[in-house]
Structure formats: C-alpha cells, structure tokens
C-alpha cells in the first residue's frame, strides 16, 4: 500500500511521464480510499489548466 506522500508524487509524475501499470494500480487503490488525494488530483488538473491559460495570455474574462 502506498501512502499519501507517495501518491502525490505519482500524481505529479503522471503529468510528466506515462505511469507504469503497477503505479497506476497502486494509485487508484490508494485514491479509492483517500478523499484528500482525490482532491489533490483535481487540483493538479486545475493547475495545469491555469498554467495553459497563463501561457496563452488568457487570464481575464473577455480576453
């Protein structure tokens, strides 16, 4: 069983490289039981979207 610290690391790395199937399995097993880490993953997706908008200069309504 992986803990939250290990899970967050995998949730960062999945943004940078494809995870191995064993890693995916460990992560989904952990997240099924951990609401904090499920939130964490949503936050990672949100931050990636924010970075995309920032990079494209789309940071305000009406842009």
């Amino acid at each position: 069983m992986i803990n939250c610290k290990q899970a967050t690391r995998l949730m960062s790395e999945e943004l940078d490289r494809p995870l191995k199937w064993q890693e995916k399995a460990a992560l989904s097993t952990h997240n099924a039981m951990c609401v904090y880490c499920r939130n964490y993953r949503k936050h990672m997706a949100f931050m990636r979207e924010a970075a995309r908008r920032f990079r494209e200069g789309v940071t305000e309504q009406g842009d």
Partner: peptide, 18 residues
C-alpha cells in the same frame, strides 16, 4: 504529513467553482 499521510487540517479540500 504525519507518517506519510495528510494531516487532517492540511488535507486538500474541495475547491469550489474552479
């Protein structure tokens, strides 16, 4: 963290209206 798990007061919360 406390032994590798989120502390309750610091655990990622639900973000509203992202």
């Amino acid at each position: 963290w406390s032994s590798g798990y989120w502390n309750h007061e610091d655990g990622p919360a639900t973000w509203s209206n992202p």
